[in-house]
């Protein structure tokens, strides 16, 4: 079973719908025990970085960390990806999981914020998440903060400068865009994650 972690932030229906479409056994859950038993974990998230604070209080963070240490594949989406970094300027008092180095920052004043719409990616050929996808696909974004580029960046995007659109290390994956809203490309990416 793939656990779609519900921590009270926004709408998880679209992620569930996409995994259902792919024929995956999945469930939306806020139960740490169920997250511990999951074969794979997806952490969606829209809205404010501060909302991730509830993950620590509810015991979900401990369940996720435990699963990650047992090599359970993990995918963070949008704020879910940002939470995999050290933190975010959006809520400096809220700590991230620190799986990837760096702090998420706001877009510069030179561009409209939030960054909403379809933008193009530059993909690293070594990525497992993007296996078999075209080299510069369009995907759907909606966010005001972004993760920095680092050695684990497997897809970058340009908006007021380059940022990390996807990161990947071992069985840890994070995407800033919404694969569940990125048409055929997004479904293929989710299928790749499900096949790992």
């Amino acid at each position: 079973m793939i656990a779609i972690v519900d921590y009270g932030a926004g709408n998880l229906v679209s992620v569930k719908k996409a995994l259902d479409w792919l024929g995956q056994d999945c469930a939306i859950t806020s139960d740490p025990a169920e997250v511990r038993r999951a074969r794979k974990i997806v952490l969606p998230g829209v809205g404010h970085f501060a909302s991730t604070a509830s993950l620590a209080k509810s015991g979900l963070q401990a369940a996720i960390s435990d699963a990650i240490s047992r090599k359970v594949p993990f995918l963070g989406i949008c704020v879910g990806m940002q939470w995999m970094f050290s933190g975010s300027e959006e809520s400096p008092e809220t700590r991230g999981l620190d799986l990837f180095p760096g702090t998420c920052a706001r877009f510069p004043q030179t561009v409209k914020s939030p960054h909403v719409g379809w933008n193009q990616l530059e993909i690293a050929s070594t990525s497992r998440l993007f296996r078999g996808l075209p080299p510069s696909p369009f995907v759907y974004f909606t966010h005001s903060y972004h993760a920095p580029l680092n050695g684990t960046t497997v897809a970058s995007c340009e908006y007021g400068g380059k940022f990390s659109a996807a990161v990947e290390r071992d069985l840890l994956f994070g995407v800033q865009f919404h694969p569940e809203k990125s048409g055929e490309i997004g479904l293929r990416l989710l299928a790749n994650f499900c096949a790992i």
Binding site: G10, N11, V46, G47, H48, P114, V116, T142, H143
Partner: peptide
């Protein structure tokens, strides 16, 4: 916006 995010 507070419940579902401004993007919604």
């Amino acid at each position: 916006a507070e419940r579902f995010g401004s993007q919604a």
